[in-house]
Design a protein around this nucleic acid. Structure first.
Lengths: 347, 347
DNA sequence: ACTGGCACTCTCAATTCGAGAGTGCTAATT
DNA sequence: AATTAGCACTCTCGAATTGAGAGTGCCAGT
């Protein structure tokens, strides 16, 4: 990577930038015509030939311009990473939208997904912030009628889960409220492990509810990340490389059965720091469905307390110059939001 | 429509059925070869020629077989409507899945969407059951810290909405609980109008919360239907008629910005009875994005109390024979579920 | 009322062909 | 030593051509 001359470096960047715009293999003549290089096509050809040998470029056919290889994109991205903050005008627009929205996690997620998709012209995906270790905060039991009861469980960090449960026999709202009050006093702030270690309750109703709470909290802990939000699915279909092939279909399928996607986010983000970005190019050999795609992924939140993941998926020749700063900026925004929420919970 | 001879009728059905399977214009020879009609191609040709004149069939080119017109599909569907209950085996499978799932509205919706999409190979869409007139059931106020409070509002019928609100000054959990208790006693069972007519409360906190409750209930009433669930988006892309054209893109876009879709469901279902089905063919001239598509729509629930809508969108040559009974059956299932939930609320 | 036969139309896939774009190499130039 | 001009070569892509196949409508005969 470091044995490139300066001219080769800038030429490589130029070629990739041009290809990202035009989606067409770029040849020596085209390059000379469009940009004021003080060189002749022949010289360019020699350089391109070397870049090809070094694995940064590739020829689709014996004689059609060059196209970046995955390695080429990787070099390109490594350049992007340092430079380029999002223009202030755009930053302001986005921040403004966030301040206008209701202070509600799912609203934020939806908005963030929309912003990402819009800015990057790709598919965005965000997981809701998720406590690394679920901690009990509050439970409410609301009698519906006779044996049916609505249980609302709130975790530290603001996650809320509801469940309708059917008891063996009717119970009055009063008794439910007492049960809830007892449990709230007992369990406040406890983590899942501490909760599991508790001795059994005397009151059978208390015990039943406790079991259900534990079950819900286990579920919350096991799903490695919260609910998923996406936007921009149709952006993918307008990209020329997906016009006909069914690669688009396979990629979109990822977004229907979220399991694979969740996997991917989880695995790739374990080694990404908050504030750091990771760019997956061509599925990195691991995800076949993404052979034609790239993903820009970041984590946000407060490590050790509550974190989430956000990313943008697009064709390999997506506009990294736009996507990377946008993802970074939105990750920062969300981190701030989580910080505010959490801070207030911690006193 | 009634001036068709019996032979013409069965011929028309046969042609449409064949076209739905093969996605290819069907010609006279093909027809005679595949099905044991005791007739020669020439005879068929004459009949087809008449059917074409009457507007049920159409020739894509001067000489390529026939394709059904929208009118043709309409006739075809009118036949489907009466016959054909879903095979018992499938009914059982579906019912089984529902009984296994957690008793939770959003789980039901997700499951129903999945079943519909799977059975029909189309895109399914379901709106959660939604009370025609929101009625108050219960509120809980949970202190988060200092000024931030989580409000959980439960409506009759099981709709739950949460909201984080920020008070002017910190309030203890005890005082919040008292407020909630007072409001619960006061408001139980009230509809939105009755709630709005109440005189102002003496306690300023009570009053503030009341205002927020009213606002939330208004929002619940105004959105003409509940949350939307869809599944099967990728099914659309595997249909041959959408392989290349961007009609697919336009239809999919509908599902991203749900507003149009919601409109469509709302408008078309006002004149559909519970238990009744409506089939929209080719967008019926109203929805341009659906020119190539059909939709099978039904309502479910308990009229006057809580209803929802479910539908399947597919290409115009979707398998009505499968889709129609499936939609009808699932609508029935969901109606039963709503009935059970509501019934228990009414005592 | 049906059918066989025939002339006609139109699509579709395969083929051919030439223009255009791009390449690599070599010899000349700076 | 680096750059460039020139040239022969390769390969793709779109347009034009062609022939097979499928389907039609109509008419005369059963």
């Amino acid at each position: 990577m470091y044995d490139l001359t300066d001219r080769q470096k800038s030429l490589l960047l130029l070629i990739i930038r041009d290809y990202i715009e035009s989606a067409q293999p770029v040849g020596s003549k085209r390059l000379v015509d469009h940009y004021r290089l003080g060189l002749s096509p022949a010289t360019i050809r020699n350089e391109m030939s070397e870049l090809t040998e070094m694995g940064y470029l590739r020829q689709p056919h014996t004689s059609a311009g060059r196209v970046p290889t995955e390695e080429g994109y990787r070099y390109f991205v490594s350049q992007m990473m340092h430079s380029a903050e999002l223009p202030e005008a755009i930053r302001n627009t986005i921040a403004h939208q966030f301040h206008q929205s209701r202070a509600d996690v799912s609203q934020w997620m939806t908005l963030a997904a929309s912003v990402l998709a819009h800015q990057s012209q790709g598919i965005s995906v965000i997981t809701a912030p998720h406590a690394d270790q679920s901690r009990y905060k509050h439970v409410e039991l609301i009698s519906t009628q006779g044996r049916q009861v609505l249980m609302v469980l709130v975790l530290v960090g603001g996650e809320v889960s509801q469940q309708i449960l059917t008891l063996a026999e009717p119970v009055t709202q009063e008794r439910l409220s007492q049960t809830a009050a007892r449990l709230n006093a007992l369990l406040a702030g406890l983590a899942v492990d501490a909760l599991a270690a508790l001795s059994t309750r005397a009151d059978p109703l208390d015990q039943d509810i406790l079991t259900l709470i534990l079950q819900d909290m286990r579920r919350a802990s096991s799903t490695s990340s919260g609910e998923m939000f996406t936007d921009g699915l149709t952006n993918m279909l307008s990209e020329p490389e997906f016009a006909e092939s069914d690669d688009a279909r396979r990629a979109l399928k990822l977004f229907e059965e979220r399991s694979t996607l969740q996997d991917l986010l989880a695995r790739t983000t374990t080694n990404t720091n908050i504030g750091g970005l990771q760019v997956l190019i061509g599925g990195e050999g691991e995800w076949d469905e993404l052979r034609q795609c790239s993903m820009v992924i970041a984590r946000y939140g407060v490590p050790g307390l509550a974190t989430g993941t956000l990313g943008v998926l697009g064709p390999m020749r997506m506009s990294y110059a736009k996507t990377i700063p946008t993802v970074r900026y939105v990750a920062g925004l969300l981190s701030d939001l989580v910080n505010d929420t959490i801070a207030s919970d911690q006193q």
